[in-house]
Design a protein around this nucleic acid. Structure first.
Length: 586
RNA sequence: GGACCCAUAGCUCAAUUGGAUAGAGCGCCGGUCUACGGAACCGGAGGUUAGAGGUUCGAGUCCUCUUGGGUCCGCCA
């Protein structure tokens, strides 16, 4: 159940009742900062003090009294300047947890009441290039957000908006004719395409005739030339194979792959519409939106002197044009309610302009830029995408390294007798732990801030890192294995009791799951789930150290098995919602 | 020239969007174990939230200014 929403409801009703108001007022329920203040606090009295012209403590007193007698509430008392502190009843928590424990489908997380159709636009690599570390954040953050939104009941469309139609294809086409080697293209296509692209782009920089030729080939491609079209299709096809391998490794999938090329035919219409509605005008041969000339433009854009260009003076369109066409398609053909763009913070201005243009065009679909910070190296500077010898560090090689590092640490653990991994499980465990460590290190922090990439921290496997959580899960699984039990059977039978302080603490953490998942969905912040799973694992480890499970008797044993099962399920579900796996033994 | 973002413990990051005495991990110091898995548990030290004003019952969070860092901005994506 959504605990905070429930408390907000009973809190606001209590306020209305206690103060004889004509309607409910916000209770402003928040978790307390310190357990000695109870579990939650109601801050509404202080807000109302001014409106009603009475001292907040005088309002808080009857509110506290009105809350007494409700099942969930053990104690409600006034404190400080006018807080109403709520202590939840252990019996009520135990009963609620037992219900959630029996809910194998959703672990007690209710679906949203108003499901929406949401497009999540993420990853978006360029064709004919390897994915590199720069694509990591968009891919895993976008995947996590998609999983979360989907789980809470939204209709999610994961869209990989490939860069498959830009100026690089003109260069590639002329380059392949000049330097291309068919054998290399067969055996290692991306490497060959990158090699040729590099040569072509260098040549174009100093050879104007060559650059013109590339532009001409691009124009031919875009106007439907059969030969160029075939080449382009071949580029796309081999690129897809390489991309699919990386996505498989990351366990990331898409519902649609609507790259830039999918919108090509819509582009002239976009420019016509902008011109026709007086939003854009021609300037120096190009078609531009000048924000400082539009009264209805957002005010910080109005100060922007430089325009938003939607068609170059040579007649070619830009990604701005494509992006507009894409929104129109999502709004008019897909009937989406929202679109989320999981893209680097640095493109913030572009999206402000795009969204403003869409509003001027009369599109009312919710558009949101889900920005994220730069990946930094240990030196605090943006992580170089090339290594010391100038080779690009590909995403595939980074993931390979994470698996190898994980494997090395697991080997150490096995040698020291601390870990239990069967030889035949080694590949799977290194993959889950290694990839999980990379994902967790990224997802556990607020996506907006820059993120420092540090192998040692990720693979040190101590404290707040992916393996700590997976280890907690393995401990849970191990209890069932040792007892000859299965998690789901134990869950089905168990009735939870909260007897000792560590069990009560664990229970309170378990109670927060649904709120956390919904909050993460609303704010597009996967780190909230990571934080919860970490706190839960900590609480479980405390419980584990203090409370015997298999050696306990009767109802206590049954309850502790239930708490263990529920912890395991929340860790597994929580990690799954951010795209990280678990294993039974590690 | 304009726009946007950031500054929290030695380091890496939180802080439920304005709530009480700002919390974790790493590192440091001290403790726990004949154990359902020590990649663990418990405790301690460590802070003028860059600085100065302001708004109000209440500010790390909102407003203004200052300092220091970053990013983006006419024909790339």
């Amino acid at each position: 159940m959504l605990l905070e929403r429930y408390l907000e409801t009973i809190g606001s009703e209590a306020i209305q009742r206690a103060l004889n108001l004509d309607g409910p007022r916000p209770a402003l329920v928040r978790p307390t900062t310190d357990p000695k203040f109870g579990d939650f606090q109601i801050n509404g009295a202080m807000k109302l003090a001014k409106e009603l012209g009475r001292p907040p403590r005088e309002l808080a007193q009857p509110i506290a009294e009105a809350l007494r007698g409700i099942d969930a509430i053990e104690k409600a008392e006034v404190a400080g300047p006018g807080f109403v502190n709520i202590h939840l009843s252990n019996a009520w928590i135990a009963k609620t947890l037992t219900e959630a424990l029996h809910d194998l489908d959703r672990d007690g997380v209710p679906p949203v009441e108003d499901p929406e159709k949401v497009i999540v636009d993420f990853s978006s690599p360029n064709i004919a290039k390897q994915m590199h570390v720069g694509h990591l954040r968009s891919t895993i953050i976008g995947d996590a957000i998609s999983r979360i939104l989907s789980f809470v009941g939204h209709d999610v469309v994961r869209d990989n908006h490939l860069g498959d139609w830009g100026t690089q294809f003109g260069l590639l086409i002329v380059g392949m004719r000049e330097w291309g080697e068919e054998a290399a293209l067969q055996s290692d296509p991306i490497t060959e395409l990158e090699r040729v692209y590099k040569l072509a782009s260098e040549r174009a920089g100093r050879d104007e005739a060559f650059a013109d030729q590339a532009r001409a080939e691009l124009a031919k491609l875009q106007s439907g030339d059969a030969d160029n079209r075939k080449l382009w299709e071949h580029f796309v096809e081999v690129s897809r194979t390489a991309l699919d391998a990386v996505y498989a490794e990351l366990d990331v999938s898409f519902d649609v792959w609507l790259g830039e090329s999918a919108y090509h035919e819509a582009l002239p219409g976009v420019v016509d519409a902008l011109l026709g509605k007086g939003i854009a005008r021609e300037d120096d041969g190009a078609v531009c939106i000048f924000w400082d000339e539009l009264d209805s433009a957002p005010k910080n854009l109005r100060k922007q002197k430089t325009p938003f260009i939607v068609r170059k003076k040579d007649g070619a369109f830009l990604y701005s044009t494509t992006d507009i066409a894409t929104v129109l398609h999502r709004a008019n053909a897909l009937h989406a309610d929202r679109a989320l763009y999981v893209v680097d913070n640095r493109q913030g201005l572009h999206f402000q302009q795009l969204f403003a243009a869409m509003r001027l065009l009369g599109v009312d679909m919710a558009l949101e830029h889900i920005g994220f910070g730069t990946v930094l190296g240990r030196d605090g500077k943006p992580l170089r995408t090339r290594d010391a010898s100038g080779h690009v560090i590909t995403l595939a090689s980074l993931l390979e390294e994470s698996k190898q590092r994980a494997r090395a640490r697991i080997d150490e653990g096995i040698a020291e007798g601390r870990l239990r991994v069967r030889p035949e499980e080694m590949d799977e465990v290194s993959r889950v732990v290694g990839i999980g460590a990379v994902k967790y290190a990224d997802l556990r922090q607020n996506r907006l801030s820059d993120y420092q990439f540090d192998w040692d921290k990720m693979i040190s496997f101590q404290g707040n890192a992916g393996p700590y959580l997976q280890y907690a899960y393995a401990r849970c699984a191990s209890i069932f294995a040792k007892g000859g039990l299965t998690m789901d059977d134990s869950a089905a039978e168990a009735s939870i009791l909260l007897e000792t302080p560590t069990e009560q603490t664990l229970g309170r953490h378990l109670m927060r799951f649904a709120d956390v998942v919904h909050q993460a969905a609303i704010t597009s912040q996967p780190h909230l789930i990571c934080e919860h799973v970490y706190e839960l694992s900590r609480a479980f480890n405390g419980f584990y150290a203090e409370c015997p499970v298999l050696d306990a008797d009767g109802a206590t044993r049954e309850s502790r098995l239930g708490l263990t099962a529920m912890t395991a399920r929340q860790i597994r579900r929580g990690l799954d919602l951010v795209g990280i796996g678990v294993v039974d033994r590690m």
